[in-house]
Design a protein around this nucleic acid. Sequence first.
DNA 1: CGAGCAACCTGCATGC
DNA 2: TGCATGCAGGTTGCTC
Length: 271
Amino acid sequence: MPELPEVETTRRGIAPHVTKRRVLKVIVRQPNLRWPVTPSLVDELPGHVIDKVDRRGKYLLLKTRIGTLLAHLGMSGSLRVLNTNKSPSKHDHLDIIFEGDRLLRYSDPRRFGCILWEPNPIESHPLLQSLGPEPLGDGFDGEYLYHNSRKRVASVKTFIMDARVVVGIGNIYANEALFMAGINPKRAAGKVSRLRYRALADRIKEVLNKSIKVGGTTLRDFTNSSGNPGYFKQSLQVYGRGGMACQKCQRPLSQIRLGQRNTVYCPHCQK
DNA sequence: CGAGCAACCTGCATGC
DNA sequence: TGCATGCAGGTTGCTC
């Protein structure tokens, strides 16, 4: 479900409700996520205050004085702030109950996400170790992409979706940014010019920023922390539109498989 | 080292 | 209606 804009939407939604709040209790109903929910979470988090909600790539970091809760939403996960009287349904795997009448509920039908507890400095967590720069941060631009793609024969789409290269760009926004930049997704990453990588980096920033502004993309079931959908779907130009007319040239969009992922592009506008 | 792919799991749309 | 199939927003970890 979530790429960077959806995770950032979640972060902004939950932050005001959990920051400075003290955890009363943690309830785990289904520990078998991508990795087992860290068992000590239930014993260690209660009694402590969430100081800050950060994001690194698609990971959410709930920081306390004694450690960090690291959450990933996988393909179908969500975090919502609810009243404690709301009873859980089938895929509501974990609750963090706060003092007062609020709880943070993790739901994830496919269970590709994770909830981990890390008592040590989070910067050294293995899952965060090999992540590339934030696409909306200073370390990311066309020069960076150009420099790191030399001699790479994999497709440029696979390249920008690799979290070791740059975090946060999933299948939706990779398709969109390549269309906006006029680059064929099949092109070898190492054969894209410096000039065109500048355009690509700019379009990546643009599409992510615009999506965050409207609460992300809701395809079937993504909702923000209050249960509302995101509105970027209506702005998508190629994702989910294989066979339909290109919005620039009116020719039909091609749909292919690239690195096991559905890929839509315009053979006329993207070279 | 990089590239390609199977795997994790459930829900939903489609076709017979 | 029922069943089989294929597909979905992500990422790791295996093989070559």
